[in-house]
Amino acid sequence: MSHIGRTAGPGKQTLRREVLAARDRLTVDDVREAADALARRALELPELAGARTVAAYVSVGAEPGTLALLDALRARGARVLLPVLLPDNDLDWGAYAGEGSLARVRRGGRMALFEPVGRRLGPDAVTAADVVLLPGLAADSRGMRLGRGGGSYDRVLARLERADAHPALVVLLYDREVVWHVPAEPHDRPVQAVVTPSAVRRFT
Score class of each variant (00 low, 15 high):
5 G>D: 06
7 T>L: 13
10 P>L: 01
16 R>W: 00
20 L>H: 02
21 A>L: 05
24 D>N: 10
27 T>F: 13
32 R>T: 08
35 A>F: 07
35 A>D: 03
39 A>D: 08
49 A>K: 12
50 G>W: 00
53 T>R: 11
62 A>G: 04
67 L>T: 12
67 L>R: 15
68 A>T: 07
72 A>V: 07
74 R>F: 07
75 A>M: 13
76 R>D: 01
81 L>A: 02
81 L>V: 02
85 L>N: 03
89 N>D: 08
90 D>I: 05
91 L>E: 07
95 A>D: 14
96 Y>H: 08
99 E>H: 12
100 G>P: 13
100 G>R: 07
105 V>G: 13
109 G>L: 13
111 M>A: 14
111 M>C: 05
111 M>G: 15
116 P>V: 01
119 R>N: 06
120 R>Y: 00
121 L>P: 14
121 L>F: 02
122 G>W: 00
123 P>E: 11
123 P>H: 03
125 A>R: 11
132 V>R: 05
135 P>Q: 06
139 A>M: 14
145 R>P: 02
146 L>N: 13
149 G>E: 10
151 G>A: 09
152 S>T: 02
152 S>D: 02
154 D>Q: 09
155 R>C: 02
155 R>E: 01
156 V>S: 04
158 A>V: 01
160 L>D: 02
161 E>D: 13
162 R>G: 05
165 A>K: 12
167 P>A: 12
167 P>I: 08
176 R>S: 06
179 V>N: 05
187 H>D: 03
188 D>V: 06
188 D>M: 10
190 P>Q: 09
191 V>H: 04
191 V>M: 12
196 T>S: 12
202 R>T: 08
